[in-house]
């Protein structure tokens, strides 16, 4: 039993806090009545996931998560909410078919139970052998050698996405 006030204990406590942040953020994101609150919940959840990445030995991916997701994607979604959320006050008045909520709860509960059971009960084969370098330098090296083709392809994908979203957002502009 680890003591709470040792180094390992505090590390475990921080991990538990991060788990709580992630879970509660995800819950807020899907259950909030107003759209801007679910955006805030999503951002909270993604900050928690960035901390989880830090625990998984990859500070670079954690920083990228903060930059790309929490910074860029969060701001973009918040902008879209500001541009396209007509009158949030009327939203709770129109209920959706309650059957959908129940069915969704059942389906996602079944998916969660099945995946969690599989993950916990499978005997995963650990990699045997000397640990290899997983730092930022190793990531950069393999991005520019083994995965250089994918690296270039994803920049093309991003370019096409930028042009496509500009074209899409321009269409029908004269109707306003």
């Amino acid at each position: 039993m680890t003591s709470l006030f040792s180094q390992e204990g505090l590390t475990g406590l921080i991990f538990l806090v991060l788990l709580g942040i992630t879970g509660s953020g995800a819950l807020v994101a899907v259950t909030a009545g107003r759209l801007i609150r679910s955006v805030a919940g999503l951002l909270l959840c993604l900050i928690g996931v960035a901390g989880i990445y830090y625990f998984l030995n990859s500070p670079f991916v954690a920083l990228m998560q903060l930059l790309i997701y929490v910074g860029a994607v969060g701001v973009v979604i918040a902008f879209a909410v500001m541009l396209a959320d007509p009158n949030p006050d009327k939203q709770p008045a129109r209920g959706r078919n309650p059957l959908m909520g129940g069915l969704g709860f059942l389906t996602s509960g079944a998916v969660f139970a099945g995946l969690a059971f599989l993950g916990a009960s499978t005997a995963w084969k650990r990699h045997m052998g000397p640990p290899t370098d997983s730092g930022m330098a190793a990531i950069g090296k393999s991005l520019l050698t083994t995965y250089s083709m994918v690296f270039e392809l994803i920049s093309i994908v991003l370019l096409v996405a930028i042009i496509g979203s500009l074209v899409l957002a321009r269409a029908g502009r004269e109707k306003i």
Partner: peptide
């Protein structure tokens, strides 16, 4: 693994429960 399954399942639930397009994107 359980955390990953939880996030996936809650995203699936949100797909059913959210009524707006932005909610489904979230």
């Amino acid at each position: 693994l359980v955390l990953g399954a939880f996030l996936l399942a809650i995203g699936l639930y949100g797909m059913f429960a959210q009524r707006t397009l932005i909610g489904m994107l979230i």
